[in-house]
Design a protein around this nucleic acid. Sequence first.
DNA 1: CTCCTATAGCTTTTT
DNA 2: GCTATAGGAG
Length: 656
Amino acid sequence: MIDYRKELSEVQYKAVTYTDGPELVIAGAGSGKTRVLTYKVAYLIEKGIPSNQILALTFTNKAANEMKERVGRLVSREQSHKVVMGTFHSIFARILRNEVELYKGILPYTGKFTIYDTDDSESAIKKIVKEMCLDPKVYTPSTVLGRISKAKNNMITPDLYPQSSLYEADVERNIGMVYEIYKKYKFSLIASNAMDFDDLLLNMWLIFKNNEKIRQRYARHFKYCLVDEYQDTNLIQKEILLQLTKENQMICAVGDDAQSIYAFRGAIIRNILNFREDYPETVTYKLEENYRSTKTIVGAANSIIQKNTRQIFKNLYSNNSKGERIELFRGDTDRSESRFVIDRIKEENVYRKRSYNDFAVLYRQNWLSRSFEDALRREHIPYRIFGGMSFYQRKEIKDLLSYFRVVVNPSDEQALRRIINYPTRGIGDSTLQKITELSISSEKTLWDIFSHPRLYMNLVPKKTLGKITDFLHLVRGWQSQLNQDAYSLATRICWESGISKLLSTSSKEEELEKYENVQELLAGIKAFVDDRQKEGDGNISLDDYIREVSLLTDADKEKEDNTPYVKLMTIHASKGLEFPYVFIVGMDEDVFPCRQSFDSISSMEEERRLFYVAVTRTKQRCVITGADTRFRNGSFSPFEPSSFIKDIDRQYIERV
DNA sequence: CTCCTATAGCTTTTT
DNA sequence: GCTATAGGAG
């Protein structure tokens, strides 16, 4: 039995135990947001709501995992396991796999659809742009995908696009053909039986909108809906939540408008500011006591966020000790900046016995990590960089995963393109070009064409024909083994495809490193299979694995390692975390605040919120650094100190 | 078809 | 500093 009164503050207790209707919890930084969410889940279960009828949504895998773990500590494993908890994308993917097939009319997918990551989407778009003979410099994959993503996040399907304001803006920017690309892109996704990240939301919304029966089934099933980081929801996510809570209005949204930092991917801060308009009966609680940081940190953070205009009023305070002032340091080069930081870490470690685990280096942009990484390596201080190029984005990993994807879903064009000639097997560009043309003119998938040699036997040399047949046999062989357990099939694919041989017998250092990564992936699959089997899930196929892994992008692959290490990450990646000793580095004008994000006034406010997030990660000490010159693009460029530094109230600052 | 080299172009944040 | 692409030689 949990003693809620004892373990929660008064307002936390109220927020946890209110279950009569829609609820908005404004949770200031470090005020126990996750605590409220997890205790609330436990409370609901205790009140008798079946755990599989509780829906808890988060934004990142990291947040989802933390929540799972913490709920697991409060209620029995069996109960916590049943709670429907995860990211918007992963939960909707799961539902879609169960429902799409019943809904073939509008969404011609099968439950085995693959999920395209940004790379896959961009190369699909690139191909379409080429096919349409548009200027690839004007229609860059990232621009086009950005527009399409924006459309999807606003529930604008291709047929609605021309009437939307998006289209007007496109015409203004001379990219009026985005609309045509969007149409083609949609069909290419369908042909590949693939959805991109945004489709997971859009298609969920479409099903609920067009099929009242299915919507009601889910709306009735979920007795209670909890949403973490509500300030980061975009329009379509809000709409799906409305679809799910239309009748019972049982929603608890937790968030902090001051920490909304995802406008660039469509987050609408208005969602939290105007929550009451969507749910008129809303009861609001404000968690204003910060348990994490010193008075100085909270004071400094307040003085920063004060400059923003649109926000929900709150008075964040701390009852902790006053603590040390925030230190400012400015180096003349990026090298001296990193030397200062690393010297400080060493000093604290040696003379004050601070663990390396206590330190975090936070920056606005990934590339800033380089000088710190170099310095840490020079000094042999253990460190880890989070984010950046993640494990699952490495070429060798994507290649192997593409094999798995093709075996599970041969329509997956992007995966097929990756592996068709890797390792090189004599099916080169010109062959692929011919097959592609054939597939476009006959409206068949690449795989379909490949499977019917009669269609192209006159077009390619006999030699190549044989190579294609060999490849087909290889893949078909694996497909027939799909009922095997994921690990043994994966290992087989790894060898029979030639990947293992290619990488392990190479004399190049980097290839061998890649082989290590491949081995690590296989070990991960083994762990996955063992884990799931322990829970009694029976035979775990490659299909099961690929479903799980396609939404894992970042730090989900925690390394089991007991040696303390310094953590390096972007401010975005640091959200939800806390560290005793924080360095906010690269505090230079145009770097942070970032010039590129200044396309509207609200961006400046978002940059400021980002700074607020960075400072409030600190438990005890915060050091802010910058540099007069940085080595960038092969030359040294000068930088001015960030204007944000002036925003901090003087009383909280000391210069080094 | 493959492998190698040169070069251009780009580095905001994430599912 | 890194990657994606183009062009050339074998």
